[in-house]
């Protein structure tokens, strides 16, 4: 079964003409899921908060996987190097994953402050990361990977959060 957030996160309703649109739309969808999770935690309803946090983190993991397994991999293959800009992006993914863990722990311990602190940190890290991807990396992939676009879209559609 496909969960609603997955659909939102994929931006499937629109036709996508570039990696910038496809992945940029996914960023916005993930932002919205974060805002929901943060609000749920603040309201103190941990049942809802736990689910909202799972939705958000699943969407994030899936986005990272789409990049690391498909888009970055194809870009690195085309460039013949893994030492380029994708290396920096992968590093930032690993930093964000540490914060994911802190957020999961905070939900398990029902610690509002710890969650909001980790969440705020994640949000800023994520936004400056997204900004760099949207302004530099995605336009580069649009140029380098234009010929394989449809195929890569298909591969990314098939990626899961696991």
């Amino acid at each position: 079964m496909r969960l609603p957030y997955e659909q939102a996160c994929r931006g499937e309703t629109k036709t996508m003409n570039s990696f910038s649109d496809f992945m940029g739309g996914d960023h916005s969808a993930c932002d919205a899921l974060y805002a929901e999770a943060e609000r749920a935690v603040d309201s103190g309803d941990w049942n809802v908060a736990g689910k909202a946090n799972d939705h958000f983190l699943n969407a994030m993991e899936r986005h990272f996987n789409m990049e690391e397994q498909v888009l970055f991999a194809a870009f690195e293959a085309a460039q013949g190097s893994t030492m380029g800009p994708t290396q920096v992006m992968r590093h930032e993914h690993s930093q964000m994953r540490q914060l994911f863990q802190q957020m999961r722990d905070a939900v398990a311990e029902k610690d509002v402050d710890a969650y909001l602190g980790a969440g705020e940190t994640l949000l800023i890290l994520m936004q400056q990361h997204n900004s760099k991807e949207e302004q530099i990396l995605y336009p580069m992939t649009d140029q380098v990977l234009a010929a394989e676009r449809e195929e890569l879209f298909k591969q990314m559609e098939a990626v899961t959060a696991e």
Binding site: M83, G84, Q87, V88, K132, I136
Partner: peptide
Amino acid sequence: MNPAALSL
């Protein structure tokens, strides 16, 4: 690293 990477 190449210049593109540095700018990131």
